[in-house]
Structure formats: structure tokens, C-alpha cells
């Protein structure tokens, strides 16, 4: 078989990649408060316990609010930038787009620190709002990357054809552009939502008195007796992430099928 050794290596690599995720539910359903083998038997009590922690519920709601807002704002900003980048030539295009995409490679601690400095200098208090500002900054490049490929797959003459047939610029956007890039928009919303929901370091610096879910989790990791509950929560989060990603991937593929283009791979 071609690539025999490579295939074995690839499978081992997948095991390496999935090892933590596979262990997570094992400990979440394990009837023991110490996270170690051998397993002690099946229980759902850690999941039940999750429902009894008010601080957790506040953190979850806070995170959801932040993630939804981030997803919408960064997708909107991503739409503007991706459209401009794929459709128009304008002065300093490389520089402008470069600046916008920088957070993709910038260490997050730099983003966190610099936003913190500005907030403190301006005398603004830290809140969910400041977390959103930071999250939009790091999610927008992802949105742009996704929407860029949507716009690139969109034949420009489709819009010209609609305009030529009597539609205005706005109705052309509504009737042609929007339906054809909608899968990209949904995918961008889901990805930005997932990143924001999971992001720790910026939230850690900018959250003030309203911890997000990862910040709350971080505070719990110090207490060994809380770990099984964290595992249960982690299991739910992972399941949720996989669900969201599968949905995003589904929409991405549907978008490709709809425009009749070739599938060229993943999200990035």
C-alpha cells in the first residue's frame, strides 16, 4: 500500500491530537474525585453538581453574551474588509490589510496588555465591554479569512449581470451577493463565537468583576476537589464546540457546492 508507514504515523498523530479530548469524558463520568487511573465507575453526579453553582451560571451567561456580540461585530467588520480586499484596489491596501490581520500572529498577551494599558490610561473601568473589544480584535482576522474565500469564489460578473439587468447596487447585494456568501457568513459567526467563548488570556486581563467562563474555570483549576466538575463542564464545552464546528463545516461545504466551485480544504 502506498504511504503505508505514513498512514501509521498519521493515525498515531491523530491519537496524540485527540488524547486530551478522549480522556475528558472518561474523567467526567468517573465516580472518583481524583483525576487518575484506574477509573472508579460510572456516575453523572459531576454533571448534576454543575447545575448548583450560581457563579458558574453567571460566568456562562456572561461568556455567551460576549461571544454572541463578538461574533456579530467581527463578522460585520470582516464583511467590510473582505469585500474591500477582494473587490477593490486602493492606496496602501497591503499595509491596511496587514494591520488588520496582525492579531492572527501577535501573541495574545500583547493584545491583552496593550488594551489594558489604554483602558487604565483612559480611566475606563474593565467590564464585559472591554473583553468584547479585545475579542473582536482577534476574531476579525478569522472572519476575514473565511469571508475572503467566499468573496473570491463569487464571480464578479454575477453582480455586474444583476446590475446590468436593472437592479441597484443595494438590491444586487441583497439578491445575489448575500445569498451566495451566506454560508461564509454563518461559518464566520460560528468560528468567531467559538474563539470568543474559549479565549482566556484577554478575558483574564480585561474582565473586571464579571469573569467569563474560561476565567472562572481557571480559578477552579487551583482546587483539586473542583476538578471533576471542571471535567464535566469541559465535556459539555467540547461537545458543543464539535457541534458548532460540524455545523460550520456543513455550511461551508454547502456554499462551495452551491457556487459549483471545487472544495479546497479547511477553515484557515
Amino acid at each position: 500500500m502506498r504511504g503505508g508507514w505514513l498512514r501509521i504515523y498519521a493515525l498515531l498523530y491523530l491519537v496524540f491530537l485527540y488524547a486530551p479530548i478522549i480522556l475528558l469524558p472518561l474523567f467526567a463520568f468517573n465516580n472518583g474525585s481524583i483525576i487518575a487511573f484506574p477509573l472508579q465507575g460510572f456516575t453523572t453526579r459531576w454533571f448534576v453538581e454543575l447545575t448548583t453553582i450560581p457563579a458558574l451560571h453567571t460566568a456562562v451567561l456572561n461568556s455567551l453574551m460576549i461571544a454572541v456580540t463578538t461574533a456579530i461585530v467581527s463578522t460585520a467588520l470582516g464583511l467590510c474588509a473582505a469585500r474591500a480586499a477582494t473587490r477593490y484596489e486602493f492606496p496602501a491596501k497591503r499595509g491596511i490589510m496587514g494591520l488588520i490581520m496582525v492579531p492572527l500572529v501577535l501573541p495574545e498577551i500583547i493584545v491583552a496588555v496593550s488594551l489594558l494599558v489604554v483602558m487604565l490610561q483612559l480611566g475606563l473601568g474593565l467590564s464585559a465591554m472591554t473583553v468584547i473589544l479585545g475579542h473582536v480584535l482577534i476574531c476579525t482576522p478569522f472572519s476575514i479569512a473565511i469571508l475572503n474565500s467566499s468573496f473570491q469564489n463569487l464571480d464578479r460578473s454575477l453582480e455586474e449581470a444583476a446590475f446590468d439587468l436593472g437592479e441597484t447596487r443595494f438590491s444586487t447585494f441583497r439578491l445575489i451577493t448575500l445569498p451566495l456568501i451566506m454560508p461564509g457568513i454563518i461559518s464566520s459567526l460560528l468560528i468567531a463565537f467559538t474563539i470568543s467563548l474559549d479565549e482566556f488570556i484577554i478575558a483574564f486581563f480585561l474582565t473586571g468583576n464579571e469573569p467569563t467562563l474560561p476565567v472562572y474555570l481557571w480559578s477552579q483549576l487551583r482546587f483539586p476537589q473542583r476538578i471533576p466538575v471542571v471535567m464535566a463542564l469541559g465535556t459539555i464545552l467540547v461537545a458543543l464546540s464539535i457541534l458548532l464546528l460540524t455545523t460550520a463545516e456543513y455550511f461551508r461545504r454547502r456554499g462551495i457546492a452551491r457556487t459549483g466551485a471545487d472544495d479546497t480544504g479547511g477553515f484557515l
Binding site: 464571480d155 460578473s157 454575477l158 449581470a161 444583476a162 446590468d164 445575489i176
Partner: peptide, 10 residues
């Protein structure tokens, strides 16, 4: 106009 790529709305 009839476009080179035909621009049929997919």
C-alpha cells in the same frame, strides 16, 4: 450584456 463567463446565478 452576455458575459464571457455567462454569469448564470448559481
Amino acid at each position: 450584456m452576455v458575459f464571457q463567463s455567462y454569469a448564470i446565478f448559481p
